[in-house]
Amino acid sequence: MSTVNAPVPADPRLETRVDAAVGRHTETPDRGGLGKRVWWRHLLGILALVWALFPIVFIYSAATNPSGTLNTASLLPSGFSLSNFDKLFSDPARPYWSWYRNSMIISGVGALAAVFIGACAAFAFSRLRFTGRRPGMLALLLLQMFPAMLALVALYVTFAKIGDVLPAFGLNTSIGLILAYLGGAMGSNVWLLKGYFDTVPKELDEAATVDGASHARIFFTITLRLVMPILVTVFMLVFVGLYGEFMLASIFLTDVENQTLGVGLYGMTLGNDANQFFGQFAAGALLASIPVVALYLAFQKQLVGGLTQGSVK
């Protein structure tokens, strides 16, 4: 696990842009102060925390609220009861654990595949020289400007047709949805990955080549190990992104058994049931948040490094 916690280099673009604009980048150890006291900063900081956290406290209160409806939910917990969780787990029309499992499988498999595909592409772009390398990189950047979801109609029709011939890969299947997500696997992360691959010294490859290692051996046994930190970062960015994806999932997954957490929980908040099911919904939301929040808190450093490079939520 030691490699996992290795820091991602701070965003080169942020710093180079500032350095370029300033014209220098030496830092003096002497720290002159602005403002005399810090207590007002704490005061405003706590205000910011209240703004950031009150909806989250509200989710907790609603989830543990004994009566479990929206109109009885208050900001601060009014009592502690697990009845909402009980109801959530025992509702046959809303198979919560199936949703949870689907979400974990789709996000996990999708992120793993995306990292592998991205790493392969980044290795080619960083280490190999071939015609079309630069145009290829630029084309990938350009393609990212067109959000894939705008092509949702075409994606839907395509997968409906695929499903006619190969039912296991069509609409309403996890595999189909993962495939649709993987269309963007190479494009969205390759720049981030390539930047990190470039920092691994080329001399290592050359030495291994002299020793008779093939390109595949270099890739799998040398490069992939050295770039592990960025692979972890990209895995988490993709995982979190897929976990929260709603639009394609809602179009693709129509059977309640196949749905993800997002689509399933959304169904709970519709129509006249919204008030009645709010406690159950909040309980489900609370549990659904745990994996991603844990990932965020555990890997803050890597994520911050990755976020500033242009992945936007």
Binding site: L53, I59, A285, V292
Partner: peptide, 17 residues
């Protein structure tokens, strides 16, 4: 760590809440 939480929660949850 605390201020990052709104961003960390899945978007569908926060929007629905």
């Amino acid at each position: 760590s605390l201020l990052i939480l709104p961003y960390a929660l899945p978007g569908f949850i926060t929007a629905l809440v």
